[in-house]
Simulated scan of single mutants.
Amino acid sequence: MSVTHRQTASGRPLRVAPAWVGAAPAGSAADHYRLPVRDAVWIWSVRRFARLALWALPAAAVLYGWFTLGVHVPPGPLPVGLLAGWLAIIALIALAGLLAGSRTRRIALTGLLVALAGATLLLPLAALPEEFAADAVALPPGQVHLLVEAAWALSGSGVLLLGWAVFRSRLVNPADGVLLMLAAVVLGAGSYAVKPVPTVGALLLLAAGMGLAWTGGRLVPRG
């Protein structure tokens, strides 16, 4: 028995919830919307990646908290901070992908782009010494610190938008969105936040990341 693109191996028609794959075509009932198997497998794979990659957010929060504590380790604080940023970027991309089928997908996409812009600006400024960073951006050395703060604020604004998207999405627990927005405020404060405020922000990010990873991993489209 041949299997068509709109049937499962048992011969039954494949049904995919429209909320996960986009709105149904005009003039068709949502309960009878059918999708080719190859498209459903691709969408399922992307969703599975997004759900698994959300666990990178609590891992990034742990490393960021370690970074804020100033613990001296053999690699130094810079590799720990860079690894935390890399994991956070992976998690934010996964979160935006998970919200792509929700009502707040535009806000999530905007927040992701803003956060990526802030991270792109912050990376060379944080990795290079101040005198080399000043030469790279053609600014006086005294103004590099202001540019770093602007990059932190830009990253925090992006995470704030993603938290608002989580809060309004009705897809996951809205409390996780509130925690993510609170963590974004601390993140946007940058180096102006005195200790232990950055560590508290890392704890808020850890709580939000654990909640999002747990609830996001249980999101399964209705068949």
Results as ranks from 00 to 15, higher is better:
residue 188 G to S: 02
residue 184 A to S: 07
residue 141 P to Y: 08
residue 77 P to F: 05
residue 78 L to V: 07
residue 103 R to E: 15
residue 164 W to H: 11
residue 86 W to Y: 13
residue 79 P to W: 01
residue 106 R to C: 09
residue 89 I to G: 08
residue 108 A to G: 09
residue 112 L to Q: 06
residue 173 N to P: 11
residue 163 G to T: 02
residue 121 L to Q: 07
residue 137 V to C: 05
residue 180 L to A: 10
residue 113 L to D: 02
residue 170 R to V: 13
residue 160 L to Q: 04
residue 182 L to S: 03
residue 86 W to L: 15
residue 121 L to P: 02
residue 126 A to L: 13
residue 176 D to R: 13
residue 132 F to Q: 13
residue 104 T to Y: 06
residue 85 G to R: 02
residue 129 P to V: 00
residue 105 R to K: 12
residue 140 P to N: 12
residue 127 A to R: 00
residue 160 L to P: 03
residue 142 G to A: 09
residue 148 V to T: 13
residue 166 V to N: 06
residue 125 L to K: 01
residue 179 L to Y: 11
residue 74 P to T: 08
residue 177 G to C: 09
residue 168 R to Y: 11
residue 82 L to S: 00
residue 180 L to G: 04
residue 116 L to E: 03
residue 161 L to H: 07
residue 186 V to P: 01
residue 143 Q to Y: 15
residue 125 L to Y: 01
residue 170 R to P: 11
residue 172 V to T: 15
residue 156 G to K: 04
residue 134 A to S: 06
residue 109 L to D: 04
residue 141 P to D: 01
residue 72 H to Y: 12
residue 158 G to K: 05
residue 129 P to H: 03
residue 111 G to H: 05
residue 87 L to V: 04
residue 110 T to I: 15
residue 172 V to R: 14
residue 159 V to F: 08
residue 148 V to R: 11
residue 187 L to A: 08
residue 113 L to S: 09
residue 173 N to A: 15
residue 157 S to E: 04
residue 175 A to S: 14
residue 186 V to S: 01
residue 84 A to Y: 01
residue 139 L to P: 01
residue 156 G to P: 05
residue 109 L to W: 10
residue 170 R to S: 15
residue 141 P to N: 03
residue 102 S to M: 12
residue 176 D to P: 09
residue 111 G to I: 10
residue 115 A to K: 08
residue 149 E to C: 08
residue 84 A to Q: 00
residue 152 W to K: 07
residue 140 P to F: 11
residue 103 R to I: 15
residue 97 G to H: 11
residue 163 G to P: 06
residue 148 V to C: 06
residue 94 A to R: 10
residue 74 P to S: 05
residue 155 S to T: 14
residue 111 G to P: 06
residue 185 V to H: 01
residue 112 L to D: 02
residue 97 G to E: 12
residue 189 A to Y: 04
residue 158 G to R: 05
residue 86 W to N: 11
residue 189 A to K: 07
residue 129 P to L: 00
residue 138 A to P: 03
residue 115 A to Y: 03
residue 124 P to E: 02
residue 150 A to P: 08
residue 173 N to K: 13
residue 115 A to T: 09
residue 96 A to D: 06
residue 152 W to L: 07
residue 88 A to R: 06
residue 191 S to H: 13
residue 177 G to R: 04
residue 88 A to Y: 05
residue 187 L to V: 04
residue 149 E to M: 12
residue 83 L to Q: 00
residue 135 D to K: 13
residue 120 T to H: 03
residue 102 S to I: 12
residue 123 L to I: 10
residue 186 V to T: 04
residue 124 P to F: 02
residue 168 R to H: 14
residue 78 L to R: 03
residue 150 A to Q: 12
residue 113 L to F: 11
residue 98 L to R: 10
residue 138 A to V: 11
residue 159 V to R: 10
residue 103 R to V: 15
residue 125 L to G: 00
residue 140 P to I: 13
residue 74 P to Q: 06
residue 128 L to S: 01
residue 116 L to G: 05
residue 83 L to K: 00
residue 73 V to R: 07
residue 168 R to L: 14
residue 130 E to Y: 10
residue 76 G to I: 03
residue 123 L to N: 02
residue 102 S to F: 12
residue 179 L to Q: 04
residue 92 L to D: 07
residue 161 L to T: 06
residue 160 L to V: 00
residue 110 T to R: 13
residue 137 V to N: 03
residue 163 G to Q: 06
residue 119 A to T: 12
residue 172 V to M: 15
residue 104 T to I: 10
residue 118 G to A: 05
